[in-house]
């Protein structure tokens, strides 16, 4: 229908930093792209009713494993990031397998994963001798400047392109899942788990696949965030609040559409930035205040999120005009 649009849009996004290289907007864009990828990762499983509040944990694992491997083991992020991914995926499998096996669903699944987020946050805080605790942690600079080996770049444009590529990769995964039998199976499971099992779907295995995939992607988002910001703290990359932030942004943007999480990230991050700048230091709390009100309004009035509701609207208008 509109095959060309993604390519034109993509080309424009790639070209952007070469035309416009003001560092602050570029920084915001990189941040938006990284979080968009994280939110997309969450929605890959969240859209099937698998509401995980453990993704803060996976993101934290991604960030800290990468940083710790670099600082203590002098392991290049080229190895450290895959290591972090595997760690996140293993953790996801260890917790999710029994969940699915014992049919822990809905609220209960959300709460088990919430406890997982809590554990990751507290472990990072408790091992403060190694991780810096709640004060945060910084991967060591590699001889000051940029290095491909250390995956450290001082040039914002480089980071923008990396983040863009990863984000596009996330969308690609989303599409692949959307077109797969896995998607049908998971939709069937979310509608009626028993009936799905009766029709021959291996419920536990299918759910586990998507969970591990989603956790791995989220860990990658954490690693990316760490390498870009060169500073991580348990509160910004792990824990319950980060998990909730993911869910909220996705719901605001739209959970059932590919670009929903991205729109959610754009809105929430821009909103926070605008409020932060316009209110200055007096604004402590104001951004979240508006954020909270918006969220409630969204859920009450636009349960499908912005993108989902717009699509619905277009469909309705389309019908009435034809």
């Amino acid at each position: 229908m509109r095959r060309a649009h993604p390519w034109i849009g993509g080309a424009a996004l790639v070209a952007l930093p070469f035309v416009y290289r003001s560092p602050y907007p570029l920084h915001i864009l990189v941040i938006i792209l990284i979080w968009s990828f994280a939110y997309t990762s969450w929605s890959v499983m969240g859209r099937f009713g698998l509401v995980s509040l453990g993704h803060g944990g996976f993101m934290g694992i991604g960030a800290y494993v990468t940083a710790l491997a670099w600082n203590y083991g002098h392991v290049s992020p080229w190895l450290g990031v895959p290591l972090a991914l595997v760690a996140g995926m293993v953790l996801a499998a260890v917790v999710a397998y029994p969940c699915f096996r014992f049919r822990i669903t809905g609220h209960y699944f959300a709460l088990v994963t919430l406890a997982l987020s809590g554990i990751v946050l507290q472990v990072i805080t408790a091992t403060r001798d190694y991780t810096g605790g709640s004060l945060g942690y910084t991967p060591e600079r590699y001889h000051g400047g940029s290095s491909l080996w250390a995956l450290q770049f001082s040039e914002k444009t480089t980071w923008y392109l990396i983040a863009l590529a990863v984000w596009a990769g996330g969308l690609y995964v989303w599409y692949r899942v959307d077109r797969s039998m896995l998607r049908y199976a998971l939709e069937a499971i979310s509608e009626d788990e028993d009936a799905a099992a009766a029709t021959g779907i291996h419920v536990t295995a299918e759910k586990l696949k998507i969970t591990v995939l989603s956790a791995g992607m989220t860990a990658l988002a954490g690693a990316l965030y760490c390498q870009y910001q060169m500073f991580i703290s348990p509160d910004t990359v792990s824990g319950i609040s980060v998990s909730l932030q993911m869910v909220f942004a996705v719901v605001v943007g739209g959970i059932y559409v590919s670009l929903g999480p991205t729109i959610g990230a754009v809105i929430t991050i821009l909103l926070a930035e605008v409020l932060r700048i316009s209110f200055g230091t007096r604004a402590v709390g104001w951004d979240n205040l508006v954020y909270g009100v918006l969220l409630v309004l969204f859920i009450v009035f636009l349960p499908k999120g912005i993108v989902g509701s717009l699509l619905d609207l277009r469909r309705r208008v389309g019908w009435s005009s034809s």
Partner: peptide, 22 residues
């Protein structure tokens, strides 16, 4: 199964598709 247990928000064809999931 008892009381049919279809996947109500999936189309008829998708329901059938699930039957042939193996």
């Amino acid at each position: 199964p008892e009381s049919r247990r279809l996947f109500p928000r999936m189309t008829v064809e998708d329901n059938l598709r699930m039957g042939g999931f193996a």
